[in-house]
Design a protein around this nucleic acid. Structure first.
Length: 924
RNA sequence: GCCGGGAUGGUGGAAUAGGUAGACACGCAAGACUUAAAAUCUUGUGGCCAUCUGGCCGUGCGGGUUCGAUUCCCGCUCCUGGUACCA
């Protein structure tokens, strides 16, 4: 083999890796472990595009680097294979989603294998596989059978809660439960019917059935997330969406809010991502205050973080959606207030967003009583109050809250200052100031006033200190077919778990993947979708789990993928522990990453695993955007003008397939083949070439800018693709895909190959000792690679390889002493060529079993340094001096230099700055 | 609005405990080889001025600190990601 034949080499080594099981991982307590994980893909019908492998290549490089460093590496891949696209496709074609999914997975797998990843394919998981989702269902059952105990600060079995109820009722139980949970004694509990008891337990279970308001899309027959709704219409298909109350399964993730918040401090994630999670959880510490309504039995409950300003309350504001608001309206105000409510409801989110400055509201006519001073304060309706947060009601303190201030100013309401400070610039929060005009709170600091008022509220039974989270409990059901069935049946309208021995509860066959005629989910079409116990046969739950169920624990399954008696052996999860490096997109910041952390903490609580944070270190790769190319057609003709000339004609731009454009030059023959209808097109060229325009857009089929990695591999090979994707720029940066620089990377690999094949392409290496320069070139690269691996700076490593190979080429180096470590160095990036060279060097074992070359500082030590000599901050001369010189000696040498003297004009410098080994600067 | 990230040649990007700006690569130009093209190799390539030695300008804009600023500070502009009145 004389030439660098990437096709032959890459196929050969991918085959050998597969046959020898090179990347099979196994528990080995003697070696340190390294768990390197990619966010697994949803296998879409479009196949993999060049953006997908970016993160996978980075994690593959780290994995292979860790192998060379002697780690036992777990580096798996799998598929998040439940999802809406397959179901939509099924609705359109009648093809079973399992079939489509299977086909898509085969395509993805083939594409991934072509890139030569060091995945242990034996560990592949698929969330839609019954052997996998058996355990997703199992985890659901554990959640159903648990409650969150606030004293133990962890999840405990619901059976121990029942035991406590039997002994003492629920008065002293400190547990996370629904707000409306009634109090009962032990005697009452025992007197309840089974149904009543079950009903009560639902208030405590970590997964529970409750009425929630959801985005219901009748046309799709399903509930959509906020993300999936745009301007009141579904993102897919544009069908109308309405807010509707429905019985839904929820996960009590709020029970873990505080631990999810605190856990972030320990994680090596980027600050922006942690910050996003903190904001999402949104912890506020404050108090709940109950206001009585004058002349009514109604109470208004508000949540406030500033109870210290309670004497400054001059009105209450209710959300327009609140039922209470409607009830409080007096006859005198009815017309205006109800009109306002109606108007607020009609305002779309979009309107509210673009119209933040408009202040609107309506007076209800009702008055509330301030419990601290008995004052009567007006109750208003305002759309700046959100129904979904806190209690949907606020106590307004215009003097110390900007929104309240604007509202009060607009409607001429009183503004009463209760914190010391100047009101010249409108309201001010006054945190840390002294409380004034506030009865017996006057003179206290904010903190003291808070403590004292909360004590007063609790004493009077009209409020309490409260921690409020922005985060809601997570809705856990979808009215869809292609998801995990819930292992739940209904008896007397109450949910019960099926028995564990009956898992997995396999998704039934249906005739159509649409909702039933009476609006039930697709599973309503399944025959015999029932569960039989000793007491009878009962209907099973018709909803399925949401997309995030299966992805919330897959990282554990990789550790023990074919286990049939548990989701993973404890021995194995203990050995592999947390993920050491997780690479994926930042779009999962608040969804997947939060749910996974929640489930891991839960599994930790029940003793199923020994870690309570799944992902120790995370890197978020930037999305690869598409780069579209354009041709310019003269309007009404079949003539196309090159970019530089387009303005001299009346043209319209047209997307052209980026795959027939190279370096922004159009291949005319391919263009005609691409668009047979334009086969007779004429071209007006520049310098004999057709230059295309370019623009950065999202990668999409309709913009003809999708680049398939297979095409790149076909043309340049997988090693080039891998190197090039890394060379493109910093991993975390968003960047458009373009192939403009790929030739340089390909050229580099051929140069590398030629180092080992110096004469007439024959493999030759010399066993002579390497020269000083050769070793220096090598060790510079070793040093750089070590540093770059620590910083995840992949692009600069590729540069340093290029520099090294360029230097070795000009030195004519073909010494084994240099070329062996060089092959190892490059092997994480370009594994195929490295394996081939390693084999040619006479090694029988895979290069992945080699050890990373040790960096030796001695090879980089210089005796001389070329000092830049700056005069008044400008570079004027260079001086090659031994590094052993002292500062005075350097100064003497610098002043003696002819160039320097010319600039000094015989004057002595005012100041001399010398940094040995760096710079000489003279000030004149 | 708020919270992140960013702005460096024709292009992708290097270099920040403050110390020679533009590594590496693409593109472009010239040359060699070739009947020719491709490939390969050599040289040049931030801008302006200059016959040359060389000079001036230059890291989004305006200031500041410093012997010295792409890097630090203050004030802006624009791009980009997230988020949406959270009481």
């Amino acid at each position: 083999m004389a030439e660098y034949n990437f096709r032959e080499i890459e196929q050969k080594w991918q085959q050998i890796w597969k046959e020898k099981g090179t990347f099979k991982a196994a528990v080995d307590p003697k070696r340190p472990k390294f768990y390197s994980l990619d966010m697994f893909p949803y296998p879409s019908g479009a196949g993999l595009h060049v953006g997908h492998p970016l993160g996978y290549i980075a994690s593959d490089i780290i994995s292979r680097f860790k192998l060379l460093k002697g780690f036992n590496v777990l580096h798996p891949m799998g598929y998040d294979s439940f999802g809406l696209p397959a179901e939509q496709y099924a609705i359109q074609t009648g093809q079973h989603p399992a079939l489509t999914t299977e086909q898509n997975i085969s395509r993805y797998t083939e594409q991934l294998k072509n890139i030569g990843f060091a995945f242990d394919w034996d560990r592949e998981v698929r969330t839609s596989d019954p052997a996998y989702y058996k355990w997703t269902q199992w985890i659901f059952m554990q959640l159903f059978s648990s409650y969150y105990d606030l004293e133990a600060n962890k999840a405990l079995p619901i059976s121990s809660l029942v035991a406590r109820f039997e002994q003492e009722g629920n008065a002293r139980v400190k547990a996370v439960c629904d707000e409306d949970t009634p109090a009962f004694t032990a005697a009452q509990w025992k007197a309840f019917s089974t149904n009543e008891q079950q009903q009560l337990l639902l208030h405590y279970r970590l997964t529970f059935l409750a009425e929630t308001t959801v985005n219901w899309c009748g046309a799709l027959g399903t509930v959509l997330s906020n993300d999936e709704v745009k301007d009141g219409f579904s993102e897919r298909g544009g069908h109308p969406v309405e807010r509707k109350k429905m019985m839904q399964w929820s996960m009590r993730i709020t029970a873990y809010a505080d631990r999810l918040l605190k856990g972030l401090d320990q994680l090596a994630w980027s600050e922006p991502i942690k910050e996003m999670q903190r904001n999402w959880i949104g912890k506020s510490i404050g108090a709940e205050v109950v206001f009585a309504v004058k002349g009514s039995n109604q109470k208004i409950q508000v949540f406030t973080t500033r109870v210290d300003t309670i004497y400054g309350v001059t009105y209450l504001a209710l959300a327009p959606e609140s039922d209470l608001a409607a009830e409080l309206i007096t006859d005198a105000q009815r017309a205006t207030a109800e009109a306002y409510i109606q108007q607020a409801k009609n305002r779309s989110e979009r309107d509210r967003m673009s119209d933040v400055k408009t202040i609107s509201g309506a007076f209800t006519g009702a008055y509330a009583i301030n419990p601290f001073n008995g004052e009567e304060i007006p109750v208003w309706i305002a759309d700046y109050v959100l129904a979904g947060y806190g209690t949907g009601a606020v106590m307004a303190v215009p003097a110390h809250d900007e929104r309240d201030y604007n509202f009060a100013t607009h409607f001429g309401l009183e503004i009463r200052q209760v914190i010391e400070g100047s009101m010249e610039n409108g309201s001010f929060p006054g945190k840390g100031g002294i409380v004034i005009n506030s009865g017996n709170l006057t003179g206290l600091t904010m903190k003291e006033a808070m403590t004292q008022s909360i004590a007063f509220l609790e004493e009077q039974g009209i409020g309490r200190g409260k921690v409020q989270y922005r985060m809601r409990d997570a809705i856990f059901t979808r009215q869809r077919y292609w998801g995990e069935p819930l292992p739940v049946y209904f008896k007397d309208g109450l949910p019960y778990l099926i028995e564990e021995k009956d898992l997995p509860l396999v998704l039934p066959e249906v005739d159509k993947y649409l909702p039933t005629e009476d609006g039930a989910p697709p599973l309503g079409r399944a025959k015999d979708w029932t569960y039989t116990t000793e007491t009878g046969t009962y209907p099973l739950e018709l909803s399925t789990m949401p997309g995030w169920a299966g992805s919330s624990w897959y990282f554990f399954r990789y550790m023990d993928p074919s286990n049939t008696h548990s989701f993973a052996d404890k021995d194995k999860t203990d050995y592999w522990g947390a993920v050491d490096l997780y690479i994926g997109g930042s779009e999962h910041a608040t969804g997947h990453l939060l749910y996974s952390r929640f489930w891991t903490k839960f599994l930790y609580d029940i003793g199923a695993v020994s870690i309570d944070e799944p992902f120790q270190k995370m890197i978020n790769q930037g999305m690869i955007q598409g780069r579209s190319n354009f041709v310019y057609r003269i309007k009404g003709s079949n003539t196309f003008v090159s970019l530089g000339l387009k303005d001299t004609y009346d043209t319209s731009a047209m997307h052209v397939d980026v795959n027939i454009v190279h370096n922004d030059q159009l291949n005319l023959e391919k263009f005609k083949a691409w668009r047979p209808d334009l086969a007779n097109a004429e071209f007006i060229l520049e310098d004999g070439k057709y230059h295309c325009g370019a623009e950065v857009e999202k990668m999409s089929k309709s913009k003809y800018n999708v680049v398939n990695p297979d095409d790149i591999i076909e043309r340049y090979g997988a090693d080039t693709l891998r190197l090039y994707e890394m060379f493109l720029g910093p991993l975390e940066q968003f960047k458009p895909w373009n192939t403009n620089g790929i030739d340089g990377v390909y050229k580099f690999l051929r140069k590398l190959w030629n180092l080992y094949h110096p004469q007439n392409g024959a493999f030759t290496v010399s066993d002579l000792p390497a020269s000083k320069e050769e070793l220096k070139a090598l060790h510079k690269a070793i040093k750089k690679m070590e540093e770059d691996m620590a910083n995840f700076s992949f692009n600069t490593s590729v540069s340093s390889f290029m520099i090294c190979v360029n230097e070795l080429t000009s030195l004519g180096c073909n010494k084994r002493e240099v070329l062996e470590p060089l092959a190892i160095l490059i092997s994480p990036y370009a594994p195929h060529i490295a394996e081939e060279l390693w084999a040619l060097l006479g090694h029988g074992e895979s290069i992945t079993k080699a050890r990373f070359p040790a960096f030796q500082e001695a090879h980089l030590v210089e005796s001389n340094f070329e000092y830049p000599v700056m005069i008044n901050g400008k570079l004027r001369a260079k001086l090659d001096l031994p590094l052993t010189l002292t500062v005075p000696e350097i100064e003497k040498a610098a002043l003696a230099d002819a160039q320097v003297q010319k600039w000094l004009e015989d004057k002595a410098p005012k100041k001399v700055i010398i940094v040995p080994g760096k710079i000489v600067n003279l000030v004149v």
